[in-house]
Design a protein around this nucleic acid. Structure first.
Lengths: 343, 343
DNA sequence: GCTCGTTTTGACAACCTTGTCAGGCAGTCT
DNA sequence: AGACTGCCTGACAAGGTTGTCAAAACGAGC
């Protein structure tokens, strides 16, 4: 179980009978080394299973790149973050860049800690789904020349490249979609108002309600649902209330699931219409199948990677802002008509 | 848009009017520095927003840790990998360790490339869901003293700590479960046989079939389904054949989804029984709800992290092997009786 | 064999830190 | 006063690598 320390360039050079520098040249594929010595060095590399120490290398190389980027996401276990991570990985992979990722869990302190840790490791760039009100602490990174890209949520207090989904317009689409079938009493069930995307989706709901002159019923606006269980409860309360809605707009994945659970329990899944924001994997298999406003996380990841890598390739210019369109996918639940259509 | 290079300890020391070493002492919280100088250094640190260069630090520190571990997973976008990653992250977080992760996509060359990249960055440890037949190339890592933990799949050609699910027994449970309801013609729908877990699950299916003296019908054993679409097709073919099964055992997530899609299209979802390996998020909401053999990915991640970190804490001992039990969750689809119970 | 130009080679410093160790400085004890 | 103690401090080397530059080796041409 005893292990020898890793071979260094010095060991390789010694075994090959050349100077360290020559060994370095061979390892880095520089030319101007006689074939005989090249051979000897390569033999030694194989024999010792030499692995260059990238830390030492970047340390010495002038302003060396670490070939690693950091990603701060909401939660690596959730499918949205996973898809983003994966899409960025594919892009990074092409450039031999690795990804260090962490979950912020909606906590500002986690975001800061992660960014600091990445920064101490001198990552070449950062992709961040920001938490909270203020990203100005990241100014230090940009000033040090580390490019920064925000995903999913717009940064506050700092200008930088970002990619967003059309949350506001997607939510408005959902309401228009329901209204087109005849609904006028549409409830909003949403995530924590601390989350910018949740606020934007509510704003879209509001705008559409106004455009359509739907009745304004604050009791039908339920916020701060962060788990499926909470959404389930809220849905039950809503539908048992004196003035129940005829349709639901659920502004997030887990909320949608909670609402469906409640509807099924109450036996109302084919009575109350539902449109959810964010696709769910088995939406097609449910009865009725679930109508959603879909985002495109892989595309968001690709765009983010693109924004970052163009900066790393030297692009200098003002911050760029990309808004990705959402797609309405009618599957059934959003096309259920209201009980009696008052023409 | 011009940026100044990052401040180094030299800059801090200069600004504080002390030697580099003294600045280092303050930054590292060593004692034996007069309060007056400590103050001055801290002021300089704040003013310059100094970030220690962890690479340089680990390089110098005796056998320094990088406080990073590498994870090679199947696909960062799939929920199983995501859950593993997240569970390990939580454990790592407690120790201020970061995670560098990559997807191998069932490709041996990707696995090797990732491990090499991790190794050049001198990660403190590796957690790997291995691909293919041979992990002996990883011997170099263990010999260099980098602890290695395998997850989900047993390593080949190398002894090391590992955590597995009880694939064989879980699959056998599924068959016993179906047989208990009266099924004797149970089809197997499985993933690529190149994947060890798929083989184990088939082995469990075989063992249970033997124990129960079920009829041996090779036409009911369908392998190498790696996508939902493939599973869908296979299910349709199976059920339209001359001798259709009365129940299906689907050995993986996507296969389960494909089979359900097919059953629904054929209108057989309440006729043909189904047990799937691996839980699916909305299993509860489907009609019938889906009976599954559930794994526990977060627990697997926790155990893997544990195995790794005890090694990093100095534990020396023979490789440990943990097999996590699976749980049968009856929800409906697995309790459908066969059309006519012979007996 | 000698000179010259070119190619190969290696010594050394540097990247940013930290471990080692000796020197400086106060205050104490004979 | 002189020797000694203990605490602070900084010079220097080292960790593994690469940039710089001068020295060495080579080949060609006379």
């Amino acid at each position: 179980m005893e292990h020898r320390p890793r071979a260094t360039l010095r060991d390789v050079a010694a075994m090959a009978g050349v100077s360290i520098k020559t060994a370095s040249r061979v390892v880095n594929g520089e030319d101007g080394v006689r074939p005989l010595k090249t051979e000897a060095v390569l033999r030694a590399v194989r024999q010792l299973d030499y692995r260059p120490n990238l830390s030492a290398s970047t340390l010495r190389r002038n302003g060396g790149r670490t070939a690693a980027i950091g990603m701060v996401l909401e939660d690596l276990a959730n499918p949205f973050s996973g898809a983003l991570l994966r899409a960025v990985e594919d892009e990074a992979n092409r450039r031999q860049v690795l990804i260090i990722a962490g979950s912020a869990d909606e906590r500002q302190d986690r975001e800061r800690t992660l960014v600091r840790a990445f920064s101490e490791r001198r990552v070449d760039g950062l992709i961040i789904a920001p938490v909270g009100e203020d990203q100005s602490h990241l100014r230090a990174e940009t000033e040090a020349g580390t490019p920064l890209v925000f995903v999913d949520r717009e940064p506050q207090g700092l200008l930088a490249d970002c990619v967003l989904s059309g949350n506001e317009s997607g939510a408005a689409d959902a309401i228009h979609h329901l209204a087109a079938v005849g609904h006028r009493r549409i409830a909003y069930l949403g995530d924590l108002r601390a989350i910018p995307t949740a606020r934007e989706r509510f704003a879209g709901f509001q705008r559409a309600s106004l455009e359509l002159t739907l009745p304004w019923t604050p009791a039908h606006h339920i916020h701060d649902l962060h788990t499926a269980a909470a959404a389930d409860d809220a849905t039950v309360r809503l539908l048992r209330s004196a003035d129940p809605p005829t349709a639901l707009f659920t502004s997030q994945n887990l909320v949608t699931l909670g609402a469906i659970t409640a509807l099924q329990r109450l036996g109302l899944q084919s009575t109350i219409a539902l449109v959810g924001f964010d696709d769910i994997p088995t939406a097609d298999l449910l009865r009725p199948a679930v109508t959603v406003i879909a985002q495109d996380p892989p595309r968001m990841g690709r765009v983010a990677a693109d924004l970052l890598f163009t900066r790393l390739d030297g692009f200098i210019g003002p911050p760029r802002r990309t808004v990705l369109p959402t797609t309405t996918i009618p599957r059934g639940s959003g096309e259920l008509p209201p009980p009696l259509s008052p023409s």
